[in-house]
Each structure stands twice: as structure tokens, then as C-alpha cells.
Design a protein around this nucleic acid. Structure first.
Lengths: 205, 205
DNA sequence: TGTACATCAGTGAACGCGCGTTCACTGATGTAC
DNA sequence: TGTACATCAGTGAACGCGCGTTCACTGATGTAC
């Protein structure tokens, strides 16, 4: 169990952790398999006992990210229940919280260039994450008059896109630089205005 | 002027074009200075007559991207005038159109990891792009009752974020894979609902 | 409890590769006389 | 118009580097007897 000795104990886990830390520090480009191995206190060749190669290691980081992501979203959804509105808003906020709290996972998932279709396993778990948001949208959908009700998948896509855009442009230091407003505020007001547009929040509040 | 002969004619331009094509084909990671040189029919060392190095070449691609981007946004804005609403919607659509039509520039600007603060020149032109969107927002702002008027910079950020999120998740093949709706439709309906939430579109249309 | 042995996680050396960058050079171009 | 010359864009060879990956190996571990 302990790390000392010839055998590592849990190298697989240590490698994923090292990879996540590296991705977080250096960006997707800066990640090197050899360096992840070094950080785990192991020769580069040892990595191949646990992963097929560099890409496979990143994919595993992304997979774990989607697992956490789905849990976080599901939890937020449940917290908001039985109010469809509260559930919907909470999942939006959870997106931002996830990006903040698990930046390595976030980058592996969305910025590393790893396709979600790389593995059936990865595709499945990503679909599950999407499903949580769509379920929240479906719940909301029932409160909109049928004749002006957009497909739930559409407005779950809207909220996802808004959340993703806020994260990319204003929550990570990348190109947006100094954001005009705190990302949390930006996302909250944005979702608020959007939901009012759907007729789900009264115009006066 | 012609390409034949010892001297290239316009190597600088050819290098930027090669870089853009490569970035578009291989992603930001796949871009190699040596290969851009090869495509321009030139030795890697020749690049250093025109650029300080690899990063500088990417930064120049991004700079040209911002220049085009600003023009495109400005043009869309002007087309929508004198209607503030039409101008606002048009700039949103222009964002998507830009990403579609100039993918290499788009990637250099937003996905290459090049900071907008790398050069004062680059920062300046990016600020100009932001200013176009904010001006559109200011125009719109006048139609909102002052007491419930969010800062123009805030809702220009919302539209930017929504546009960016739609592009990243649904218009590029990256992680979102098969999008549930055409990105154009997604963005248009999203902005429509958002503007209705601001009270800028009548609830019945 | 003690010994023999199979397993297999991790070693260490080596590889080929393409990369970004440098340097002294060369030869095409355009200008001055 | 013709010659001498300065300029400087592009050459080609070389570099050191870190990368991902391979391979035969070794030695710690746990199991069978």
C-alpha cells in the first residue's frame, strides 16, 4: 500500500493525478507522459503497464472528469428539486463550480483535443452528463405553454453553451483576460434573463 | 513578385497562410514551424527573417484574425442599423459566421493558448473587437427602462459567451460531437429568448 | 513455519524522430556611379 | 547602357532537446507445497 519499495502500490492512480496536475499547470500542450511518470516517481516505461500511451492517459483523466461532472450536476439537480426552476439554475452554477474546482479534469475534457468518441466508455459517460442537463430542461419544459415551448434539448443546449462560454472567456485566464464581471455573476444574470425570456420568471423578479 | 527564383516575393504572407492552413488541419498542437516553412517552399531558418519564432508566427495569425473579426462584426453592426435590435442580433450571428469561415484564425485566437496580452498590438486589436459588441449593447440598452437595465458590458458579455459556447460545443467537431440542432438555429433561438428576457422583444414575437 | 517458484510491476538503456533555433554562407536584387 | 557594389532574403548543415515508445531484464510479492 505504501509508496516505498520496488512496487508502487497504486501507480495508475498516481499517474492520473500527476497528469491532472500537469495539465492544470501547463495546459493541454504542456503535458508530457515522461514528466507525469517522473512526478509519480517512476520510469516512463512503467506507464505502459497501465495505459496504452499518452492519449490513453489523457482520455482516462477526461473519463474521471466526466464521472465527477455528472455527479456534481446530478447533485445540484437534486438539491434544486422539487422546483424545476431551482434545479435548472443549480445545474448551470454547478458547471462553473466544476470548472473552477477541477481545472485539470475540465481541460482534459474540453480543451485537450481528445474526442469524446475516442472510447465507447468515454462517449457513454459524456452522454450521461448531457442527459442530466436535459432532464432538468424537461422538468422546466412543463411550465411553458406547449405552443411556445422549445424542445428541452434545445434550451439545455443554450444553458450549456452559455455556461461553457462564460467559463472559457471569463473564468479562465486565456484570451478574455480581465473579465468585466465575476463569472458567477455573469452566468447567474445571464441564466436569469434567459429564463425570463422563456416566461419562467415573472418580469418583475 | 512571382514565387520563382531565389527570393520568395512575399514569404511573410505565405508563412502566415501556411500556418493558418496547418492550424486548421491539425489543431493548435499540430502546428509546427518547420512544416509551415516547408509548405511555403522554404527552409525553416528562413522563417526567422520575418518572425521572432514559433509563437510570434501564431500571434501574427491571431492578430490578423482579430482584424478580420472586428471588420466582420462592425459590418454586421452597420447592416443592422438604425435598429439597435437588428444590429445586436447581427453581431451575434457574425460571430458564428466568422468561426465557420476563418477556422484557422479562430483557433489561433481562441484555442491556441496565445495570450491576448502577449503583444500590446494584439491586446489593442482584441479590445477593439470587444468595443464593437459593447457599442451594440449600448445602443440596445437605451430601450430598456433604466431601473432594470443591466450594464451594457454585461449583456454584451452574455451574448459573446453564448456565441462562443455554441461554437465550441456544437459548431466544431471537438467534444460535443453530433449537435442536436444546427448551430445557427441554436444561437438564433438562444439570443431571441435572451432578448425577450430583457424585454426587448414582445412576448408574442 | 520454511522453501521453491510463478507472476508481473517497474527498471534502465536505447531508439528514432521532429522539433525550434543558431550560424556562417551565398547569391539574387536593385542602386550608385 | 554597363559595371561595381551593398544589401539582405533565403540556404544548408548542424545543434541539443525532450519526446513517446520498445525491449530484455530484474527483483519484490504472494502462493503452493
Amino acid at each position: 500500500m505504501a509508496k516505498r519499495g520496488y512496487h508502487h502500490g497504486n501507480l495508475r492512480k498516481a499517474l492520473v493525478e500527476a497528469a491532472l496536475a500537469l495539465i492544470e499547470e501547463r495546459g493541454p500542450t504542456g503535458f508530457a507522459l515522461s514528466e507525469a511518470a517522473k512526478r509519480a516517481g517512476v520510469t516512463p516505461a512503467a506507464v505502459y503497464r497501465h495505459f496504452a500511451g499518452r492519449e490513453d492517459l489523457i482520455a482516462e483523466a477526461a473519463r474521471q472528469g466526466y464521472a465527477i461532472f455528472t455527479d456534481v450536476m446530478q447533485y445540484a439537480f437534486d438539491q434544486g428539486q422539487p422546483s424545476a426552476l431551482a434545479s435548472f439554475e443549480a445545474t448551470g452554477r454547478a458547471y462553473l463550480a466544476f470548472a473552477r474546482r477541477y481545472p485539470g479534469h475540465y481541460i482534459a475534457m474540453f480543451e485537450s483535443g481528445i474526442s469524446v468518441n475516442r472510447t465507447p466508455e468515454l462517449a457513454a459517460i459524456a452522454a450521461r452528463a448531457r442527459a442530466v442537463l436535459e432532464r432538468a430542461a424537461e422538468g422546466l419544459s412543463r411550465h411553458i405553454p406547449p405552443e411556445k415551448r422549445p424542445p428541452p434539448a434545445m434550451f439545455s443546449a443554450h444553458v450549456w453553451a452559455l455556461s461553457h462560454g462564460v467559463v472559457e472567456l471569463f473564468a479562465r485566464n486565456s484570451p478574455g483576460t480581465q473579465s468585466p464581471f465575476p463569472p458567477e455573476e455573469l452566468l447567474e444574470t445571464g441564466i436569469g434573463i434567459y429564463l425570463r425570456g422563456l416566461g419562467l420568471i415573472a418580469p418583475d423578479e
